[in-house]
């Protein structure tokens, strides 16, 4: 089994708000992230897939295909977007780094045909990142 990781970057804005909370509760829970006008980050995405090395190609996965899927399913939808308003998953779910990692996993898992998804890592900043290993982990 070999693990392969591909990185990508996207920039997006978001804010944290739960409509079931009072304004005070929202502010206490989410602090500065509760500003309804949003704020932004340069996110770094790391997608790790795993599989056996194909003896003919020497690849775990065709990197070109992985790159295309990441672009189509994730970057086209999230890069230079206001996540709360433009990405369907976040119309009714808070776009925290945790939920972004889960949403990216769900977007990719069924689309990767050659190798199995192992981990989705999303860096919100260089000092904060989330790893998601799938629903069953």
């Amino acid at each position: 089994m070999v693990y392969l990781t591909r990185k990508a970057e996207f920039s997006a804005s978001h804010y944290y708000h739960n409509p079931d909370f009072t304004p005070e509760e929202n502010l206490r829970t989410f602090g500065k992230c509760n500003n309804p006008n949003g704020h932004g980050h340069n996110y770094t995405l790391e997608v790790t897939v795993k599989g056996e090395v194909d003896p003919r190609s020497g690849f775990v996965v065709d990197l070109k295909q992985l790159k295309e899927v990441m672009h189509r399913e994730v970057l086209d939808a999230m890069d230079h977007r206001f996540l709360n308003k433009e990405v369907p998953e976040f119309l009714h779910q808070i776009p925290t780094t945790e939920n972004i990692a889960i949403a990216i996993w769900q977007r990719l898992a069924t689309k990767l045909t050659q190798a199995a998804l192992h981990r989705v890592r999303v860096y919100e900043t260089a000092d904060l990142f989330v790893d998601f290993y799938g629903e069953g982990s």
């Binding site: 990692a101 260089a126 000092d127 904060l128 989330v130 790893d131 998601f132 290993y133 982990s137």
Partner: peptide, 10 residues
């Protein structure tokens, strides 16, 4: 769903 959160300090 379970996730891992990592934070770096200096």
């Amino acid at each position: 769903m379970k996730a891992h959160l990592s934070r770096r300090y200096r």
